[in-house]
Design a protein around this nucleic acid. Structure first.
Lengths: 192, 192
DNA sequence: TAGGTGATGACAGCGGCTGACATCATCGCT
DNA sequence: AGCGATGATGTCAGCCGCTGTCATCACCTA
């Protein structure tokens, strides 16, 4: 057990989410979030490098799930198979219990461009992670980047669907969106 | 002709690019940029909503080229054909004369996460623009979003190549990357 | 020449974020 | 029990990004 009250980042995140939801992101100061859990502004910034980061705490697990998914793909898998493996692994992160929190969090993010920007940034990092994994497997630079970016595209679309559709799991939705991607690009381009 | 010295945003951008390149983005204050062209910090922020925006001045033309590309696509074009049309239109923006500037600008952006974040944000806006155009054509929500995001993926990869490869035009590279996308997704997934 | 318009300057102020130093609770060791 | 090490927190000062407000000044129009 910790010396100090454990879960400080989590408590800050919870308080921040509530304050952002009621007052809005910009109308909430870091000092107010800290005060809500009995801490000071300075301490807030010791736990989070930026005010926005308080909403992204815990996402490291997602990155690692993604990395693991890439690592576990068959050695002879094609780039898109590796990407699919990464997406399946990511499905383990977005469990059913997580959905309410994700929804509340997304509602806040949808209200603020700065937060959307941050979320995109995290997504891009995820893509870079996958691309690096692909390059390690000997996939060419351009192919790796493209496949990873497409994986990001699928993820972004699937995640949005997952938040809306209570009836389907993240894995199901992702599989559908991946299939849709293959359908979309099935016909060759006339001017290709 | 204007009442005041014309091209103030352009002059600020030029000064900013030079200062960012030598000192770095964070080590350069908005006041310094303004002072470099004989203006005050306050005036800088009248031209640019944020310090970062000084590097994105002029990109509205890109958005409009993109929009025009979508509009000019054949009425019966498939989603990916529309995306390809948008990418071709965007090629008109990245002319040969623009390459040196783009390269210098990118070198600065590559050095700073905040700027990378901003660039991704702009790219996402572009994708949203294309997606909206697709929806206007009756393409379903999910398909539109996915196709647009894939277009963004192709653009991101192609742009990187364009900066590196002096010998090829943006249009050529984009066509290649689009072809690569179709190659990547040609084989159906085993678990699809 | 007078008045309108719009870019700029000057100033005050908030909030995000950081560095530096002090404090204090807990842990491990004796 | 006592003691030093460790690490989270508090306190304070300060820079910078960014904004509101009002004054100023250049230029245009009549």
């Amino acid at each position: 057990m910790a010396r100090w009250a454990a879960g400080t980042p989590e408590r800050l995140q919870k308080a921040a989410l509530e304050l952002f939801a009621t007052r809005g992101f910009e109308q909430t100061t870091a000092a107010e979030i800290a005060e809500a859990v009995g801490l000071t502004e300075r301490t807030f910034f010791r736990h989070f490098s930026e005010k926005r980061e308080v909403l992204f705490h815990g996402q490291q697990a997602l990155v690692e799930a993604c990395r693991a998914g890439v690592a576990q793909a068959q050695p002879d898998a094609s780039p898109m198979e590796v990407v699919a493996a990464a997406l399946r692994a990511v499905g383990a992160f977005f469990t059913e219990e997580r959905r309410p929190f994700s929804r509340a969090r997304q509602a806040v993010i949808d209200q603020n461009p700065q937060l959307q920007e941050r979320e995109r940034h995290k997504l891009a990092n995820l893509a870079a992670e996958i691309a690096a994994g692909l390059r390690d497997r000997g996939v060419g630079e351009v192919t790796a980047a493209l496949a990873a970016e497409c994986g990001m595209a699928v993820f972004a679309v699937a995640f949005g669907q997952w938040l809306r559709d209570d009836a389907r799991s993240f894995a199901e939705i992702t599989a559908d969106v991946l299939a849709e991607l293959h359908r979309l690009t099935a016909a060759p381009l006339p001017q290709g």
